[in-house]
Design a binder for these strands. Structure first.
Lengths: 194, 194
DNA sequence: ACTACTATTAGTACCTAGTCATAAGATCTC
DNA sequence: GAGATCTTATGACTAGGTACTAATAGTAGT
């Protein structure tokens, strides 16, 4: 025994955790034991073989991708939308959106939800944010659900600017307020709207 | 020939593209040809075998992960920093940051760089954005490098607010300007600073 | 010293999803 | 009908394993 079995198995776990691409042969070399010992260890620890490990990583990537791609288009999920008028989206604050230390949501995520909703509500090919005036009323914590409501205030076809107001709430409490001046490339299609 | 060779190879490419986890046997079944034909096709199209494909996906996921974890803390890379005074970060606009249609960077990414730099420059345990007044001067395109410069304007220990101004440039041209009013939990440690 | 036990190593057969090379049959074109 | 291209079959070999059996080494208890 180079070291105790327990020790080796603990290290084996960690080694594979941080590099799932390592073969039994390499592991045997690393721990100065036979390949069979490594296999027994994996069996006891129920660590799958190299190919299964790699497959698992790849499959997770695939899942993540299909999840992140549509979400990337609009931050949060749109639940109501009337083009050039109003829109509502919800956004669940998860681990990846918060500061590690205090679990408070990073400002730019709350902003991103509001901003992308402001972009989405504009009935146009090209909508860009020109200016924004925002206020974070209170901090949002991990686990909370933010409901953003966008309202188109004015559509000025002359200079191609549209003002959108976005209010975001957690449990009916205002947490964020923003006024977005949006640039649009074309005239609004529905001129009867105010 | 069920269909022409070219046709089949085109479809093969697409099939594997959208599901890299498919075996030659399944592909042979799907296209009603022998396994050998599929292998010849892959050879001609230089599509690697199943295991190599899976490995590639898994490896990319690994790269992405180590890249995204530290970057997530501050959007962009900090290249200069004097706490409570100034800071500079760079941010390369890539595919995932732009609108598909026009390759223009989504506003919230440019905002995120500026906002997280404003958070980082504050010499405090807890720094949150309270208000922000921002202007997008011109749109930023995919492939461009945005350099954000943050400057602490005032530190008011009385109400625990700090004003940070962030200017972002592409090739020395101002693309974004923002004034952030930051909330901080404690007094600044260096009171001699203005 | 002998036994009991765990830990380790060795060896074999088998598996999947391939590779490479060769040969033979099928189909299309001229 | 001959050639060229395409398709299929066959056999030998590979990596990185599983599953199982068997032998050996080392330590502890009596």
């Amino acid at each position: 025994m180079r070291r105790t079995k327990k020790d080796r198995q603990q290290m084996l776990k960690e080694t594979i955790m941080e590099n799932p691409f390592i073969t039994d042969e390499d592991l045997a070399e690393k721990f100065q034991v036979s390949v069979q010992t490594i296999r027994l260890d994996r069996l006891e620890l129920s660590i799958p073989e190299l190919r299964e490990r790699i497959k698992y990583v790849a499959e997770k990537k695939f899942e993540d991708e299909v999840r992140s791609l549509p979400i990337e288009e609009v931050i949060g999920e749109i639940i109501d939308m009337e083009l050039d008028q109003s829109a509502i989206s919800i956004f669940d604050v998860r681990e990846e959106h918060v500061f590690i230390r205090n679990k408070i949501a990073r400002g730019h995520h709350v902003f991103a939800q509001a901003n992308s909703l402001a972009v989405a509500v504009i009935n146009d090919e090209l909508a860009l944010t020109a200016k924004a005036n925002i206020k974070f009323k209170r901090s949002v914590k991990q686990g909370e659900r933010v409901i953003a409501k966008a309202k188109v205030i004015t559509i000025d076809d002359g200079i191609g600017r549209t003002i959108v107001e976005v209010m975001s709430y957690v449990n009916n409490e205002l947490v964020f307020k923003g006024e977005f001046e949006m640039y649009r490339s074309e005239k609004s299609l529905k001129d009867e709207k105010r």
